[in-house]
Design a binder for these strands. Sequence first.
DNA 1: GAAGTCGTTTGACTTTAGTCAAGGAGGGCT
DNA 2: AGCCCTCCTTGACTAAAGTCAAACGACTTC
Lengths: 239, 239
Amino acid sequence: MNIDIRSAHLFSSLNDHQVEQVLESSHISTLKDGEALFETGDDANRFFLVIGGQIKLFRVSSNGDQKIIDIIQPGNTFAEALMFMEHPIYPVSAEALGPARIISFDSKRFLHILSGSIEVCFRIMGTMSQRLRGLIKEIDDLTLQSATTRMCAMLLRRMDEVGMSRFALPAAKGVLAARLSMKPETFSRILQNLSSKNILRLKGSEIEIIDESLLRSLAHVESIYGLEPEMPCRVRSSL
Amino acid sequence: MNIDIRSAHLFSSLNDHQVEQVLESSHISTLKDGEALFETGDDANRFFLVIGGQIKLFRVSSNGDQKIIDIIQPGNTFAEALMFMEHPIYPVSAEALGPARIISFDSKRFLHILSGSIEVCFRIMGTMSQRLRGLIKEIDDLTLQSATTRMCAMLLRRMDEVGMSRFALPAAKGVLAARLSMKPETFSRILQNLSSKNILRLKGSEIEIIDESLLRSLAHVESIYGLEPEMPCRVRSSL
DNA sequence: GAAGTCGTTTGACTTTAGTCAAGGAGGGCT
DNA sequence: AGCCCTCCTTGACTAAAGTCAAACGACTTC
């Protein structure tokens, strides 16, 4: 078990002694597919680092629908922003998307350890700012943009990430649909539609972008305010 | 001109000397109705305190539609969360909603002044956490809830704020519509509909809630995760 | 290899909110 | 008062996404 938590942005400026202290209150666990980590409304006295698999953060509506707020990738922390609240409560539910491994940390303890270090504070605030940005961006996606636009933006983002015009979808279609705030049926139809217009070719969960410029114009991606990828920070954090 | 900026949460733990320093880099300005303060994408080297009137934070879609992200009330700061980013850029536009007075502060300078004070850092992080919560809440309103639900929730919130079942809408209907992510027509129709069902009586911008329990059930307000009003913090901050 | 399961697709239909265009209603001004 | 202007309302229509139900396909499991 040799994980250097310092590879996570949040911990990157801790010294050896601090790392040791932090690890004392930490706890590694393995989650089965679909296993819940916490639910909306639970007391939030721990935060987490994903070391394997994916964790899905979501909210549930009264009729059981899920809206996926984010999918956390290995190397990223989440729920750490809550440690500054008086009575922290998880604003989302979290569960494993496929089998996953995580380390959890005691928020209070962590706060105490870094209480001297303004640097770590600044770091956290940086990630929080980004997160705020992301959420604001998401809100206007939801209100100002159509489902097709969101789909195109997602595909382009994925393409940029992978660096190739041919790639596999990062998760099951149903999951992506919930992430993009639409029903699986709508997701499917939009893909079908893009495919019929020869903008992309799709085979199962493999996608090949054919007409990138057209896709880009359909997404008319935030020409106004700089793209997400420009962000200086490598490891994204969440919540 | 005798304003104690310490009444704003962000500044509340500064000592006299610090207040003095902060004020040195500050600048008071008066805005006319509709006057722009900054736009989405501008370099964000200042943050603001509203001392009179209201400031509207919004985003504009490619076809000119506005989505109001928040309306900042006197006594509250906004855009202060950006000061921790390397290349801060306003993620929203801001303009006065009616005539307004604001004080602007140099972010860098402020950061420098408080660099010793971890307490202020914590304070800022607290407001940021709340802001994150609010945005997440808003996202699920948008995806999981209908326009009617959002309307009802807004009315109830307003009613709780005022403490009476009879009150005036906090802003022009068109503005509220944009805040709730719907068109003025839809806003009007929903109010009409609630009125025809004898849930409320409306006369101009005066509203009287008649059937609170029914309204509450229509809004089925976040029974799961504690209401906004429970938040410990009096003065809300933004961005 | 048959049966079952889960995720995806497809089609027909409904619901919700947006669009467009026309009609009020109120407030300020001359 | 009369006019203008802005904001709000109303009605008829459209578009977008959700719903329901059935079929499909790939992959296990027996």
